[in-house]
Design a protein around this nucleic acid. Structure first.
Lengths: 226, 226
DNA sequence: AGGCTAGGTTAATGAAAGGTTAACGATGAG
DNA sequence: CTCATCGTTAACCTTTCATTAACCTAGCCT
């Protein structure tokens, strides 16, 4: 029994080839020719582990489709792009394990990327929501729950919080945070980080067990209750 | 200034292009045309955060190079492969964050993969501490641990202590200390050093085996238990 | 002994890091 | 086009730390 993969590809020939190739590599493939067909198939979205999306699709491009799906489901994407096509938007999605590959692609490369994603997936997909003292956090939906009220976090807030969750009880460098979330480290981004720290602290002010202590010259020490 | 990257590429044209492109993207790039040159530059291996290796190199291919470096240093690799080249061996390396990209590559794709690697990188760096009698010292976090309590040192205190650790049982000149930590030696910096000595002595007052004895006119004699 | 200097100690000072709040400007939805 | 949203930048304030200053003690010389 193989891993279940969703495939959205409008070109009938390519779709068929991919499906057969992946099936021969021991995956279970469900193939859609229209983005909408996948969106409506919520059962499939819940039970599959990877979605391969063509970027050029009728009605709705692959990135938009991915973004729409992300609002509800936590599933990694592998995008199929034509050579030279801009991939800036992948950076915008940024949640987790996504990757992309250019068409036409080597079969082995496709398999490698799929395996990479699944490998990362395994180690990084935790529970749907994490309990944080008096709070609960859903990383996929950027939501923080406190006393039955939902606090909708922004993308960066959620990313930062997710990063901290993976480093509970640890000290984490400013520089590492900046590299990881922003890709580089300069003065202004550092100030930006400070602004986000203030925001996170405000969200968590009602549970004194949760703290983000600053360590001058180094970074922050993260504390969440077990 | 951005993240430091090592690049090994024997083709002069491509090497130069890559170096310039990455520098324009705010990375700091050190470029080698031969694998050996990198292997010998241990200082660079310690202080850099990502190595981009061409797979086809003179004398030693990129994978072998990576494997050799891995024995000593923990650094993620991004491999440059020609299209169609076998990539099986990348799977063999298997250590976490590595990735690869096929030449010729889109500039944005290169940046994307670099950022992906750096993003994943953080979670895997371990912490190490040195035992000092009744104390333990973590140089990376500037922390001194004594009886389960953490004493947060400042940057200069930690630097000074680190210097002393490298000269256990030895006499060390005032002048050398000043040159090393402050870059120069004048009257005021000397007094500053004395202030730091007082502080270090206070921190370590609970273990009599640890001492920083002054030797008039010369410097200090450092003693830590083994 | 007394004078001189190196170093010990503590407190004052100024610069830089970080905290906080608000304004700005890009982006995207309606 | 207008409005809302969100990340970034700006401005201002607080805290921290290295440096400087001031005063004190111990060693060394004649």
């Amino acid at each position: 029994m193989g891993t279940k993969i969703l495939l959205v590809e409008d070109d009938a020939d390519l779709g068929m080839v991919l499906k057969q190739y992946l099936e021969s590599s021991d995956f279970e493939v469900k193939w859609y020719t229209h983005p909408k067909a996948l969106l409506e198939d919520t059962e499939a979205l819940r039970n599959n582990e990877l979605a391969i999306l063509d970027v050029m699709l009728p009605e709705m491009d692959g990135f938009t489709l991915a973004k729409t799906i992300r609002k509800q489901h936590e599933i990694p994407f592998l995008f199929l792009t034509a050579k030279g096509q801009s991939i800036d938007r992948i950076l915008g999605l940024k949640l987790g394990a996504d990757d992309y590959i250019t068409k036409p692609c080597e079969p082995e490369e496709l398999l490698l990327r799929i395996h990479n994603i699944l490998r990362r997936q395994l180690s990084t997909t935790p529970i749907k929501t994490v309990n944080l003292g008096a709070y609960a956090f859903n990383p996929a939906l950027y939501q923080l729950i406190f006393n039955d009220t939902i606090i909708q976090l922004t993308e960066k807030e959620a990313e930062l919080l997710s990063l901290f969750l993976n480093h509970n009880h640890q000290v984490i460098n400013r520089k590492d945070i900046l590299e990881k979330l922003w890709g580089k480290d300069d003065y202004f981004l550092g100030r930006s980080l400070d602004v986000f720290m203030t925001r996170l602290r405000k969200y968590f002010q009602h549970d004194s067990r949760i703290s983000f202590d600053s360590i001058r010259g180094i970074g922050f020490k993260i504390e969440f209750p077990e």
